[in-house]
Structure formats: structure tokens, C-alpha cells
Write a protein that binds this DNA or RNA. Sequence first.
DNA 1: AATTTCACG
DNA 2: ACGTACGTGAAATTA
Length: 397
Amino acid sequence: MPVLAAMEQEGITLDPAALYELSAELAKDISTVEAEIQGHAGKKFNVSSPKQVGEVLFEELKIVDKPAKTKTGQYSTSEDVLSKLENKHPIVRRILDYRELVKLKNTYVDVLPELIHSRTGRIHTTFNQVVAVTGRLSSDNPNLQNIPIRTARGREIRKAFVPRGDDYVLFSADYSQIELRIIAELSKDAGMLEAFRTGHDIHAATAAKVYGVPIGDVTSDQRRNAKMVNFGIIYGISAFGLSQRVNIPRSEAKEIIENYFVQFPGIKSYMDNTINSARDLGYVETLVGRKRNLRDINSKNAVVRGFAERNAINAPIQGSAADMIKIAMINIHARLGKMKVGTKMLLQVHDELLFDVPKTELEEMTAVIKEEMERAMPLKVPVIAEAGHGDNWLEAH
DNA sequence: AATTTCACG
DNA sequence: ACGTACGTGAAATTA
């Protein structure tokens, strides 16, 4: 609590001028794209209305025979649906473009500058410690754990988060593949332990095993698929889920998963054991023994039970990573206090910590922060934190 | 107030 | 036959 309170009160500096400029650019692009969409549709309509978008795409343009529906019977126009229909009509790509731009403008660019505190001149979030069921933190009012980074326009927003002054840099340190390292720890799977101990690219190493090729011969497609499988493992994999994400037939996804479990038998048995234990006890535990109750683990409804089973797999993984970074935060905060330095912890984003660091302390802090993150909760495999710094949050990565 | 969508890890 | 990858928060629309 004291660590989070200090971070909340410290806040983070925003460059509002950069966002005002971006807002004007986005406004211009949004009206261009909106006009183009309405041109394709042959009429004006509210492009922000999923209902109206669905009617235009599936009743007027009829771009597909059997449109997907939401659980309330509306046409689904979500990103995963539309991205698969991009080749049906040029309007589809433009709707996705419109959505991206409007999201960024309305959720971040036009809102964050208004939240600069009148006295501190900085942005102050709230970190919630008892919201996420896995033990993660959450951040709200504003949420600073979901600042964009994946698209070009999104990265412009991240650039507006800057150091507290000219003599400072933003310093970021993030855990490398922490959830997969924790699976290696929990499962003790020999192949996964070995992959991390050799320091190989974990997704390439997974692909090499699953596809039966030398690691040097792994293609980018094979690596991408293996990466999706590794994510699937963390989430409690299903053939359906993998087939959706990789866009392959479910039968193919099933084969990949079966082969994965042949290559990593320790993962398979860990998952079976975890679910069986949860059925007996009614809960699962993280590495330091924090529990998540799973009241539906013995449900007779297969769908409900399936959710609980995936929770049983995921919660110890996500939760142990959350425990680890919290321990690191406590130790770092204590150490910074003792050292009487100007470095301040600003934000936590699940596997990343962000700091304001005086340029004079940069070398020292790189060593201290990395060390504390890596030693917070030792595992059977190396725990690696990667650090960077820059004149804004994007460059710090 | 509920639904839909989408931003992040 | 069913409905499905884990965890969040926020905005706009719809009911």
C-alpha cells in the first residue's frame, strides 16, 4: 500500500501540446475516412454504431452469406470478425481504420490532457490492489496500464509521457517472458527448463520441438504459430481458440496441440494435476500460496466447468508473475528510500516498471532495478529483466 | 444499465 | 450439441 500510494501521489508528466497536435490530425483523418465509408455505403450513417455498421455490411452490401451474430442477436462487427472479411469489400478496412482513430482520439488524446492535476501538473492514476482475481494490480481514473503502443498513431500517444524535467529520463524495466518461465517452474517440464537455461528464443525453441526441425531452420510462420501456442498454454489452450487465433482448421490446431504435449509432457501432466487438485480443494495457488477459489470447477455444465478449468491453469501463472513484481516493487521502493536518491517509481504495467531517473543516477539505477527485479522470486530458470531509457515512454522501451 | 468494441499485459 | 483461449478499464451506443 505505501508503495502504490507513493506512485499515485508522484504522478507522471504529460506533454499536452503533443496531444493537441495529434488530436487535430486525427480529427482530419477521421472525417476523411468517415466520408469514404459513407461513400461506399451510399448514405450517411453513424459509423460509431455497431448496429448501423452491421446493417450496412450485411443487409445492404451483403458482403457475406451468414454473418456472425452477438449473443443478443445483433450482427457482430468486432475486429476479429471484420479482419477476416477485409477482402470482401474495401469498406471493411476503412471501418477498422475509423475505429482505431476514434478509439485513440476519444479514449486517450482528448481525455488525458484534461486530467493534468492543477497543483502538481501531472497525471495521477489509482492502482487497485483488490480488483483483479489473479492478484494483478489494475489502474483506473485514468487507466495508465493500457496506453497504446501497437500502432503508429498509438505510439505517438506514448511519446507524450515524458520525464519530470530536463535532467531526468524515463526508465523502463520489464520481465522477459515471465509467464512462460513461471510455467517452467510450476511444471518442471524438462524441455521447457532446458529451453530457458540455454537462453534460446523460447518461441523458436518451441517451434523447433513441435515441428521437429533444428532451431536454426525454424521459419517465421512456424515461430509465429509456436508463439500463439505458448500463449494458448498460458490461457488454458483449446483447439478452437488456437484455430481462431492462427486462422487454421480446428483439426490442424488439434494436431499441433497434441504434438506440443508429446514434446512437453511435463506441461501436460502439470495441467492435468492442477485441474484435479482444484476439483478436490476448490482452489488453486500461486508460487507464494495466494489462492483463487474456483467455485465452478465441479459444475455439471461443461461450458461453465471449462471456464473454471482454464482459470485453474491461468491463475497460478498470471498470479505468480503478479506476486513476483509486487515483491520487487516493495524491495525497490525500500532500497530507493535508503539510498536517498532522486529516482521515483511511477507506474507498473504487469511485467514492467517505469521510473523517473535523474541522468546522474542512470548507471546506478540500471544495476539496482534490474537486480531487484531478477532476485525478487528466484526460479529454477533465469529471471531476466530488460531495461531501457529515453526522453519519453516509447523510447524507454 | 447493458452491450459492444477495443486499448493494454 | 454446446460455446470456448487469461486478466483488466473506458467510451459510445443501445435498450
